[in-house]
Design a protein around this nucleic acid. Structure first.
Lengths: 291, 291
DNA sequence: CATTTTATCTGACTAATGTCAGCAAAAATA
DNA sequence: TATTTTTGCTGACATTAGTCAGATAAAATG
């Protein structure tokens, strides 16, 4: 690796560690050791099981137990038995705990906000952050089955439509197509898969069940920050597995030649081009695959 | 700030803290507490004054003193008196210390290298890192007087030429122009200023002394990652100050209309367009300013 | 139902980090 | 030259973080 590349990464590391160091300092300003602050943050307004906190923060059982005891003594949390499994315990914020939690939130939001506010191109900065977050967490992208009307699924689809209308020169009316087939992309007929990276959607694909003897793949999308990581392939494989499980033997899809990456992917993964099989105005390429 | 922007920044923060946490873990693998490892790293192959280490790592005098004692006992460093100021002390790595230092370097380089290697667009990743490092450290950009043949100055100028030939459609031969006026951009006739952000050059400008009754501004460049921060303006102001100090009363410069940001800046900061005053083929706009 | 596993807690430590007062030598300043 | 400031060291502590070996109760397993 060239010397300057190393220097650039080093500079990034220094900048980022100073920044997180400064945030930690400001957290300490609230008079609580960092460990306790982190636990409070991990619990969050929804509450969280003790075992989850442990895996999340990678803490020793003893250490965590004592930190929880401390927060309890401060009156910030209550730890109660889990009803389903009485070995497990769940931590929840009290009224006072909520306030403390929000104070910490405000501290980090303020830093984030200041950073964005003083930057000439906030969106560029956010995109750079997305890119790096994806690069660092590439093996942490999870593909999860989601209801097509779930907010994450919706926001992924909206991004897909934005991308599409940016690439297609002709006008494009997403709202119409969107509502039409939501019900066909739910089990048991079909499914909708969202790729989640650390809580944010970075990709999606829909499997639509039909009565015409074949299933359809719809809305394959990958966020710009996560492209080139083979995510589309992973999602397609997952969709095919779901199709087989749903008893579908033939899959079809349509796409547009302004998205050459897509057709390349299809050709490389066993799809064959076929004649137009619908009268949708947007696509101009049609594929089929037996699964 | 919109909810999703916050989520994006949060995701970035999580990704980055897990990454630095993992690096810290791998540092711990060398059997030395983090504090000591950090001190060893701060000393570096060139050695460093104890007081500098203290401000760099923000350590208590007592704590640092003990950490140094520990490293000394391990035979990794020697701490000697500063010759100029006998109160101060300077830490230097021993043979064994160099080896340990390099082992730590190798650990972080390996992480950096792996990150770059597995990314589909390493250059995009590095640019994103530069952007973020600049955004985080924007008040840490320093303008320093540098010899035009210094490596930092050279690499800034090379970047300038790359930028220029990318924008100019016609061919461009930097080597010729480059060598010509290096000696005119040294005190007392002129100067060369480099904007340094945490050890890396992110901008430059040259002030060239001539015998024609005016000085010339040359090679104004700002790295893409640092654009929009008002750096060009700061560098120009600094160059003008140097010009006044060198007894120059009139400044001239040439530029090209393919760089509209540049001419806008000049017009806004008191420069007036004049007739062509040289026969250089590349520029097509000429400015003058009294200082 | 006996045994094993899981989830959590407690006590007893060790290691690491952080803080503070006081000291001594050298340098800077009045 | 007397005084103040700077630099770094040491000792004495306090706090935080991390580890480990039981102990207990509930759930899972055979």
């Amino acid at each position: 690796m060239p010397q300057t590349d190393i220097a650039r990464i080093r500079r990034f590391n220094r900048a980022v560690t100073t920044e997180t160091g400064a945030l930690d300092q400001s957290f300490l300003g609230r008079g609580r050791p960092l460990g306790a602050a982190r636990v409070l943050n991990a619990i969050g307004p929804e509450g969280r099981a003790v075992s989850d906190i442990r895996t999340l923060l990678d803490l020793d059982t003893g250490l965590l137990s004592r930190l929880l005891r401390g927060l309890e003594a401060e009156g910030l949390i209550v730890v109660t038995e889990d009803e389903d499994d009485k070995r497990r315990r769940v931590a929840n914020l009290t009224e006072a705990g909520q306030q403390e939690y929000e104070a910490y939130e405000a501290l980090s939001n303020a830093r984030a906000e200041r950073l964005l506010a003083r930057h000439p191109h906030p969106e560029r900065l956010l995109e750079a952050m997305d890119l790096i977050a994806s690069a660092l967490g590439r093996d942490r992208i999870e593909i999860v089955e989601t209801d097509p009307e779930d907010p994450h699924a919706q926001s992924a689809m909206e991004a897909y439509y934005r991308d599409l209308s940016a690439r297609l020169s002709m006008g494009f009316d997403p709202a119409k197509a969107a509502r039409l087939d939501a019900s066909d992309m739910r089990p048991p007929r079909g499914t909708f898969l969202v790729a989640m990276a650390d809580g944010l959607p970075v990709g999606c694909v829909g499997l639509k069940g039909t009565d015409k003897g074949y299933g359809e793949i719809k809305r394959l999308w990958v966020a710009p920050s996560s492209r080139g990581l083979g995510l589309a392939k992973r999602m397609m494989q997952s969709a095919e597995t779901h199709a087989r499980a749903a008893g579908i033997t033939t899959l079809r899809l349509d796409t547009n030649s302004v998205l050459p990456e897509a057709s390349t992917l299809y050709r490389r993964t066993g799809w064959t081009e076929i004649e137009r099989f619908n009268d949708d105005p947007y696509p101009d390429l049609f594929f089929e695959k037996r699964v």
